[in-house]
């Protein structure tokens, strides 16, 4: 019984069942605050009725997104910064639903972006398959994206450090110009994906 609500800073005090997950990043307050102030409509949570909780519900997941890039350069897009779901609410397409909601919001005015993108670790096959089912495809491989040192050679691949930049075009990109086939073979450095 999932309902969708705006994410609030105070939710951070009640997020342990979601954010203790080892694959979920915990950011400093600055990061959450900047998203809430700059893109409040693109930061929302899913909640479940729970009569035993003092708040009457528990948070089952959340989506943190933003819009950025230049329309002129055909880079105006929606970026999925974080999407995560509690262990107790997995395998029910909740992450997909949160992604779809973000797409639906930003595909229309006032956002009207050209595409949605996100980064996944090259080795995270499960996530890649999930996003492919949602219509995403690999646009490029960002060499050294998760590495501790800044890479200088775009041909020096490392499955542990590299990320796939996955994209899904939105209706405004009528000719699907923002996606491409065989993106796995296109290597770029992290600086080239900054907007």
């Amino acid at each position: 019984m999932t309902s969708i609500k705006p994410f609030k800073m105070e939710d951070l005090f009640h997020l342990n069942t979601v954010n203790l997950d080892p694959f979920t990043e915990n950011f400093n307050p600055l990061f959450y605050l900047s998203y809430l102030c700059d893109w409040p409509d693109l930061f929302f949570k899913s909640v479940e009725e729970d009569a035993s909780s003092p708040t009457g519900h528990q948070i089952s997941g959340y989506m943190m997104g933003k819009t950025e890039g230049s329309l002129l350069k055909k880079e105006w897009h929606t970026h999925i910064t974080a999407v995560t779901v509690s262990r107790n609410y997995r395998r029910i397409h909740l992450a997909s639903d949160l992604c779809s909601r973000l797409e639906n919001i930003t595909a229309v005015a006032p956002h009207e972006t050209l595409f949605v993108d996100l980064f996944v670790k090259v080795t995270n096959t499960t996530a890649r398959i999930l996003y492919e089912k949602l219509g995403y495809s690999v646009y490029r491989r960002v060499v050294g994206y998760y590495g501790s040192t800044y890479p200088t050679d775009r041909n020096k691949l490392s499955d542990d450090d590299d990320a796939f930049d996955m994209r899904k075009s939105l209706p405004r990109d009528v000719d699907n110009e923002t996606v491409r086939k065989n993106g796995e073979k296109v290597y770029v450095l992290p600086a080239e994906v900054a907007f």
Binding site: M9, L33, L36, C37, P40
Partner: peptide, 23 residues
């Protein structure tokens, strides 16, 4: 928090201000 509270106050981010203040 102080930085963003000032920003929300100055820019009239009324949907966020109460939450930011309480946080």
């Amino acid at each position: 928090v102080n930085h963003f509270l000032s920003k929300a106050k100055a820019e009239g981010l009324y949907t966020q201000i109460k939450d930011l203040y309480q946080f």
